[in-house]
Design a protein around this nucleic acid. Structure first.
Lengths: 235, 235
DNA sequence: CCTCATTTGTGCGTATGTATC
DNA sequence: AGATACATACGCACAAATGAG
């Protein structure tokens, strides 16, 4: 009798293939039927192994398409200064941002509270996707007070970088006041954008950043692909 | 046809029963066979629902025994000051600690490096279990430099609280220098102690705390039951 | 200490639905 | 539109752990 469950051995074998580079990030694994034949087990047993690996973030599956190797985790520091580009460059990775939306609207109660604004005040909203080496790392939504930052939308569209755009608007520095960490599950939309499995673990952070005058300038939500990121806290 | 998968409906139904208080923390759910009969589905379908809920941390199962409702999540702040008792009291919960081991031995390379000691220097090691309202929250292992804290083991055995024990040894304050966050899977031993499922998600933190003279006094590992804790970062 | 019914864990076979290509 | 591939669901059988007696 297998001391370990059969599906665990298969998961271990496939994990080894990924670790050894036999299958690289983005590669498609053989079909379940093929693997079942290769390992000499029922297709359900292969599925159980793939499910386990999917939960651990090693692969993700798409119905009708196949199972694909996920990308490697990325270290990501959370501290007083959170700078996406700097952080990833320091880690030797190629950062990029994809703009999903830049708009101006009135703040909801939560946003107004976080930014110390009157309810209904105008805010700029910046939504996008952060990538490293072409792999999606995180979804973000940043909310800024519009009255103090009139030219921000144009600056964001021009540079994508929050740090640079704020600088163009006269905010030459900003530090993080607080970060709240919660584990969530990916919604279908999030999973699609982050290229992970539906229901995969998501690390959600909610943060408030302050300008040098100690007034809040950014209220941010970030949804990290849980298995691609390790957060480090340096107060 | 059910637009949603059958097992999802069942998971939703059971989740509702838990949310409404029909099943409380620690309660045993009906057996898989019973639920299969009650819902009019195959036992596998109930199992798929329970598996989903187990992944989300709502229940945990024990072979030969049954499925049990897990306890509620706990907020837990990580910042300059990490004080277990104070934190939980502020959250209106009853803190407790269970001592697993207090010993003195020589430091390994990693510990010596973190505490700025010579390799092989003597360290006190404190291992235990943190509980809130009787529910296990975290496993911890704290390592202290023995030369500067001769009476620490006795103080720890007397008070359990790290804050108090350090105070008795002349360290009247300490602040956290750094925290690293990683997601892990529970080992069988950890799962048993934390009363979670084997392989459940664990939030592991590795931290270094400094005394007022800026010398490191504590090198800590903490394994949080991932589904019972939310971490908040306040630099 | 051992036995034994109960309960969860694993695995196979089969069938059908549904998204993708 | 058709073939392919993953997703869901049922039924059966046995293994392994638990817990009562």
């Amino acid at each position: 009798m297998p001391r370990n469950a059969l599906w665990k051995s298969i998961a271990q074998s496939l994990t080894g293939d990924i670790a050894s580079g036999r299958y690289g990030p983005g590669d498609k694994l053989p079909t379940e039927a093929e693997m079942a034949a290769r390992f000499g087990v029922n297709r359900h047993t292969v599925r159980r192994a793939l499910q386990d690996m999917s939960e651990k973030g090693l692969v993700h599956t798409r119905r009708g398409s196949g199972a694909f190797v996920a990308s490697k985790p990325t270290d990501y520091p959370i501290g007083r200064r959170v700078r996406f580009h700097q952080n990833l460059r320091a880690a030797g990775r190629m950062p990029a941002k994809e703009v999903l939306a830049v708009e101006t609207r009135s703040a909801d109660a939560r946003e107004a509270d976080a930014l110390a604004l009157e309810p209904g005040a105008a805010v700029h909203v910046y939504e996008g996707l952060s990538l490293a080496d072409g792999q999606p790392i995180a979804l973000f939504r940043s909310v800024f007070p519009a009255d103090r930052l009139p030219g921000l939308p144009e600056a964001l569209r021009a540079h994508k970088s929050v740090t640079r755009a704020l600088e163009m608007c006269g905010v030459h520095d900003y530090t993080r006041q607080s970060t709240r960490l919660t584990a969530k599950l990916a919604s279908p939309t999030q999973a699609l954008l982050l290229r992970i499995s539906d229901g995969a673990p998501i690390l959600r952070t909610i943060s408030v950043s302050l300008a040098p005058d100690n007034r809040p300038v950014e209220y941010g939500h970030t949804w990290f692909a849980g298995d691609r990121v390790t957060l480090t806290v340096e107060p």
